[in-house]
C-alpha cells in the first residue's frame, strides 16, 4: 500500500446530495456507528446463508461415505448453468427454474456417483468394505470429475461471467429500518430453512432416510441387516446434489455471477463449515456456516477485505487443533 494514507478525518462537508436520501444507513445523519455494524451483520448473515446452502448437501454426502466429494462445487456450477439455460430459453418463473435445476442436480449426482464412486465399491467382501484406501481413492476420482466438468463447461460457455438477464437477478433492495437487504436474502433464507427442515424430515421419518442414516453410521452393519447400500448411496448423491444444484442457481442469480469456476470458493467455505460442525452433523454445518459468514463480515470491519478469506482458514486450523471432532461433533448422531 505504498503511497496511500487512509486518513480517517470525518469533517462534515455539505455533500449529502451524493447520498441516497431514503435509506437509513446512507442518509444524511451519518455517522451512526450502530447502523454501520448492523449493516455489516446483515451482510454477514446473508454470506452465512449462502455458505450454509452449499454445506448441507456437502455434509450429507460426507456423512454417508465418510469421504469428501470434491465434485460438489461442480454440481453447484452445473446447477447454475442449467438454470441459466432454462431462463434464457423459456423464461419461466423462478419456482419452475428451481424444479428443473433440482432435477438436473439429481441426474448430475447419480451420474457422478456412477463414474467416480461406484467403481470403487465393486468388491463387496469385508476387507474391501473396510479398506480406507478403497474409500479414499474416491477423493481423487471425484477431483478428476470436477476438473473434467469445469473444463468442459469452460469449453462450452467460455470462462467469463455469463450474461444473466438483469430482471431475473435476486437483488432488489429491501429496506429494514437502518439496514438494507435484498430479495435474494429472503429467498435463500426460506430455501435453506426448507432444505434443512425437509432433510431432517426425510432422514428421521422416511424409509430412505432411515437407510441413509443406517449406512452412514455403519455401512457393513447396514448391509448385514439387508439394506441395499448401493441404492442408498445413490439416493444420497441424488438428494445432496439436488441441494447443491439449487444452491448454485440461487447464489448465481443472487450475485449475477455465473461462471465455470464459481463453485470453488463456496466449496471451500462449505468444507470449512462441515469440518467445524463435526464433519457429519448437518445442523452443525449450517450453524458453523452462519458463524463463518458473520465472522468474515465482521472481520472486514477491522482488517482489509483481502484478509477476510483468512478467517475461514483460521477457523479450520483452530478447529482441527482444539476441536478435532468439530464444535458440534462428539455427542451427536451421524447425519
Amino acid at each position: 500500500m505504498a503511497g496511500t494514507n487512509p486518513a480517517m478525518t470525518l469533517e462534515s462537508v455539505g455533500l449529502e446530495n451524493h447520498w441516497h436520501e431514503s435509506r437509513g444507513l446512507f442518509g444524511p445523519n451519518l455517522p451512526v456507528p450502530m447502523d454501520y455494524y448492523l449493516q455489516q451483520l446483515a451482510i454477514g448473515l446473508s454470506l452465512g446463508m449462502v455458505y450454509a446452502l452449499m454445506a448441507i448437501g456437502f455434509t450429507l454426502i460426507f456423512g454417508v461415505l465418510n469421504v469428501v466429494n470434491f465434485a460438489h462445487g461442480e454440481v453447484y456450477t452445473v446447477g447454475a448453468f442449467a438454470g441459466l439455460v432454462v431462463i434464457s430459453a423459456f423464461a419461466p418463473p423462478l419456482i419452475v427454474v428451481l424444479l428443473v435445476v433440482v432435477a438436473v442436480g439429481a441426474l448430475a449426482g447419480v451420474g457422478l456417483e456412477r463414474i467416480a464412486f461406484k467403481p470403487f465399491r465393486r468388491f463387496s467382501d469385508e476387507a474391501s468394505l473396510k479398506s480406507r484406501a478403497m474409500r479414499e481413492a474416491t477423493l481423487m476420482s471425484s477431483l478428476a470429475v470436477s476438473i473434467v466438468v469445469r473444463e468442459a463447461v469452460e469449453i462450452g460457455f467460455g470462462s467469463q461471467f455469463q450474461t444473466v438477464p438483469l430482471d431475473r437477478l435476486l437483488n432488489s433492495p429491501i429496506s429494514l429500518g437502518p439496514v438494507t437487504i435484498v430479495s435474494g436474502d429472503v429467498i435463500i433464507l426460506v430455501v435453506a430453512a426448507l432444505m434443512l427442515g425437509g432433510l431432517q424430515y426425510v432422514l428421521k421419518r422416511t424409509n430412505v432416510g432411515l437407510s441413509i442414516r443406517a449406512v452412514s453410521s455403519n455401512p457393513l452393519g447396514a448391509k448385514y441387516v439387508g439394506i441395499n447400500t448401493d441404492r442408498t448411496i445413490i439416493w444420497t448423491f441424488a438428494v445432496g446434489s439436488m441441494m447443491g444444484a439449487a444452491a448454485g442457481i440461487l447464489v448465481g442469480l443472487y450475485y449475477g455471477a455465473i461462471f465455470p469456476s464459481m463453485g470453488f470458493i463456496p466449496g471451500i467455505k462449505a468444507f470449512v463449515a462441515m469440518v467445524m460442525g463435526g464433519l457429519s452433523s448437518i445442523p452443525g454445518a449450517v450453524i458453523c456456516a452462519l458463524i463463518l459468514g458473520f465472522s468474515e463480515s465482521i472481520a472486514t470491519i477491522f482488517v482489509p477485505s483481502v484478509w477476510a478469506d483468512m478467517v475461514a482458514y483460521g477457523f479450520l486450523i483452530v478447529t482441527l487443533i482444539f476441536f478435532p471432532r468439530g464444535i458440534f461433533g462428539g455427542a451427536r448422531d451421524r447425519v
Binding site: 496511500t4 487512509p6 486518513a7 478525518t9 451482510i43 468474515e296 477485505s305 483481502v306
Partner: peptide, 17 residues
C-alpha cells in the same frame, strides 16, 4: 485527500462489506 484505500481479491463475490 484519499480518505479510504483498500485492496480486494480478484473475483470477490461480495463487495458489500
Amino acid at each position: 485527500e484519499v480518505v479510504f484505500s483498500e485492496f480486494f481479491n480478484r473475483g470477490l463475490a461480495d463487495f458489500r462489506p
